[in-house]
Design a protein around this nucleic acid. Sequence first.
DNA 1: CTCTCCTGATAGAACGTTTAATCAGCCAAT
DNA 2: ATTGGCTGATTAAACGTTCTATCAGGAGAG
Lengths: 324, 324
Amino acid sequence: MVSLKHIANDVGVSVATVSNALTGKGRVSEQLAQRIRVRASELGYRPSTAARALKSGQSGILGLVMPDLTNPLFPRMAQTLSIAAERQQVGILIADSHGSPKTQSRALQQLLDRGVDGLIVVPQKGVSPDPMPVPVAVINTASDPENSVSADHVGGGALIADHIQHIGHRHIVLLGGDPVSEVQNDRISGMLSALPSDALVRVHWGVGGIQAAIAEVRAGATAILTTSDLIALQMRSELIDAQISVPEDVSLTGFDDMNFAPIMHPALTTVAQDVDTIAARAINIICAKIRGDTLDAEGETVPMRLVVRDSTSPPKNSINRRLS
Amino acid sequence: MVSLKHIANDVGVSVATVSNALTGKGRVSEQLAQRIRVRASELGYRPSTAARALKSGQSGILGLVMPDLTNPLFPRMAQTLSIAAERQQVGILIADSHGSPKTQSRALQQLLDRGVDGLIVVPQKGVSPDPMPVPVAVINTASDPENSVSADHVGGGALIADHIQHIGHRHIVLLGGDPVSEVQNDRISGMLSALPSDALVRVHWGVGGIQAAIAEVRAGATAILTTSDLIALQMRSELIDAQISVPEDVSLTGFDDMNFAPIMHPALTTVAQDVDTIAARAINIICAKIRGDTLDAEGETVPMRLVVRDSTSPPKNSINRRLS
DNA sequence: CTCTCCTGATAGAACGTTTAATCAGCCAAT
DNA sequence: ATTGGCTGATTAAACGTTCTATCAGGAGAG
C-alpha cells in the first residue's frame, strides 16, 4: 500500500505538499506539482478511502434499501443507480429488507453503521421510514414530495385506460394484485379516471380476481387491464385454458414492461416506468442534499410511457355497440 | 457523532479502557466494563467504520461485479449474497460491468479503490479477471476450481435431457442462444451426453435457430430443449403462431427457472440453479480467504435441480416408436 | 524490608489524509 | 534599514480506533 508518506520520502518533500499537489488545493509550484504527480502515478498511488472518510466524515457511499430484491424492477433500478452513482463518484451498498418493516429498519441501521452518506429507499407497502440522520430519497411514494421521486402511476393507469377506451372498449375489467399496495391503487384509480362514464367497469383483486375476470369476459367484457405484467401473464394462461383468445376475444394489458412482456404471445401492451429517469433523479436529490444545495422543485412525478403491442385491439363487436 | 472519547470523558476513564471494555480484549474489571457498556448504549455509541477500516486495513465490504445487472439471476444472487453477507457482518457494494470486458476491469478497479476486502465476480463470457490484490470468488466459471463456484451446467443439461429421453422422446432439438457463452455450451454438451445414441438430435443457435426448430418439429421432432427460459418463452410464441401445441405436439423446456416460468402456459419444465447455495458458498470462500483460513475443497460445482411442470409429456407417437 | 509477580488501568503511537497555522525567503515600499 | 506582502513549502494537529508498552499498587515470597 503506497501512501502519501512514501511519495513524500521518495520525492523529498513533505506529506502536505504531496497532498496539495495531488488535490490542487494548497500552494505548490507548477513544476514541483508536475513532478509529484508523475511519481505518484509511477508508484501506483491510490488514496485510501478509509482515511479520507475518517478525516472528512463522508464515506462516498450511498445505501440502497429495497423491500424485495427479487422485485423485477430491482435489476434495472440497481443498474441505473450504479451507473449514475459511478458518474458522481459514489458507491452503492445494497440491503434487502425481506419485505418486513422490522427488517427494513434493521437494514437501514446497518447501512447507517457502515457510514453511508445518504439513503435511497423503496419503502414497504405503506411504511414510511423514520427520520434519518442522513439525507434520504424515497422512491415510488408520493407522500413526501420533497424527498421522493415516483413514477406517475396514476398517469400511467390513465394512459393505458385511455388507449383502451379510445379503440372502442366499453365493458372493462380492472385487475389488481394486492389492494394494500399504494402503487397498485394509484394505477387503478388512474385507469378509472380515464374511462368514460358510459363504460361498464369492474374492479377485481387478488387471485380470485382472475376467475372473476373470466366470468366477466363471458358476460361481455372486452378488455382486462391489470396492474402488473406478472398478473397479465397469469391471466393469459387462464384465458388459454378458458379458450378465450387475445386480442380477438379480449384485450389484455400489463404494467411495468418487464423483460418477458415483448416476447409473450401475443406481445403484451403495457406501460413502462422510466426507471432511468427515476433512478437518476433519486441520485441527484441525494447528492444535492449531501452537498447542502437547495434543489429546485424536483418533486414532480416521472411520466410513464405507453407501449402498445399486440395484446390489444378494437373489440370485435365494437361497431355493433357504437351503432346501438 | 459520539466517539470513544466522549464515553471516556463521561465515565471518567481513558479511551483505551473504553475500547477494551467494549471489545472485551484488554484487561478491565468486570464491574467497570459493565458500567462502560451501559453508558455507551445510553449515549447511542456507534463505532466508526471509517476509523476501524483505517486502523485495521479491512473495510468489511465485499464488491460484487456482474456483467449485466438486468440479468434475471442477479436479483436472487444479490438477495442471497446480502443475507449471507449480513450474517458475516460485511456489506456488499455492487458494480455493473455493462457487458464489456473493458468496463469490467474499470469496475473492478473502482471497487478496489473503495477498499473492498474481496471480490465476487460473475465474469464476462470467456473473460477471466486479472490477478487481483484481494481475494476473488468467481461464479459460474469452471476454469479455476480453486476460486470459483459454479452451478453444474453440464449436469443440469444432462438432468433435463434424461427426463426427456426417459419419457420417450427420440427426435430432439437443442436450442442455444449464443454459442460464445461457455455456460450455454456446457448446458448443451450436458444434454448431448445424456441422450441415447439411437436418438436423432439437432443443435441450433441464435434467432435463426427458432425457425429451424419449427422446421425440425414439422419433420418429426417431438421435443425442444432450450438453454434459457427466455428462449423457451420466445419459442413458445412462435409455436403458437405455427399452430403447434405444447406439450401435445412438442415438449418444450427452459433453463434457470426464472420468475415467469411457473406462470407460463403451459407452466415450463425447466432446471433451477441453486442460487442460494452458490451465493453462500461464494461468500464462504471469500470470507475464509480474507481470514487466511485454508478452505477444504469447496471447488465442486453445485448441482442443479430438475423442475418438471406441464410443458413436457411423452410424445404422442412414442408408443409407435417403441414398437418399431 | 526488598524483590517479583500479577491485576487493572493508562499513555501514546499508529493508520493515511486534510488543513489551519507557521515559516523561510524574497521583493518592493515606507 | 525596518516593515509588510507575497510565494512556496513545512509543521503539526485532527479524525476515531486499536494495541503495545508502561505504570501504579497490592499480594506474596524470600
